[in-house]
Simulated scan of single mutants.
Amino acid sequence: MRSAPRRLLIAVAVLTLAALSAACAEQAAEEHDHSTHSHDEDDAGGAQTGAMQSMSGGHAMVAAVEAPEDMSVSLHVEPDAVSGLNIHLTTTGFTFTPEDVNADDEPGTGHAHLYVDGVKITRLYGPSYHLTGVEPGNHEIRVALNTNSHADYVQGTTLVDAVLALTVPEPDEASAHTHAGSDAVEAPPGMAVSVHVGPDSHSAGGVNVRIDTAGFAFAPRSVNGEHVAGEGHAHIYVEGVKIGRVYGPWFFLGGLTSGEREVRVTLTSNAHQPYAADGEPVEATVVVAVP
Rank of each mutant, 00 (worst) to 15 (best):
N270K: 11
A180I: 03
K242Y: 09
A165P: 04
N146V: 12
V209K: 03
G57V: 13
P189C: 04
T178W: 12
G57T: 04
G230V: 00
K242C: 10
G156L: 08
N208K: 07
E99A: 04
G110Q: 00
E173R: 07
N138D: 14
H59W: 12
H272I: 01
A192W: 04
P68S: 14
L85Y: 05
A64K: 02
H235T: 04
V195Y: 00
T95K: 07
P249E: 14
V265M: 09
A81R: 10
V286A: 00
S72R: 09
L253T: 08
E283H: 02
P127M: 02
H37W: 15
Y275E: 03
A29Q: 12
N102L: 02
D152A: 15
L253H: 03
H179N: 08
H130M: 14
G84Q: 04
T92Y: 09
V193A: 05
S56C: 11
M191W: 05
A13Y: 03
T91Y: 01
A67I: 05
S72G: 11
A11W: 02
H272W: 07
Y153R: 02
D161Q: 09
A44T: 05
R245Q: 15
P5W: 04
G244F: 11
V287M: 08
L131C: 10
G45S: 14
A204I: 13
A67L: 12
A51I: 13
L267R: 09
S182Y: 10
G110I: 06
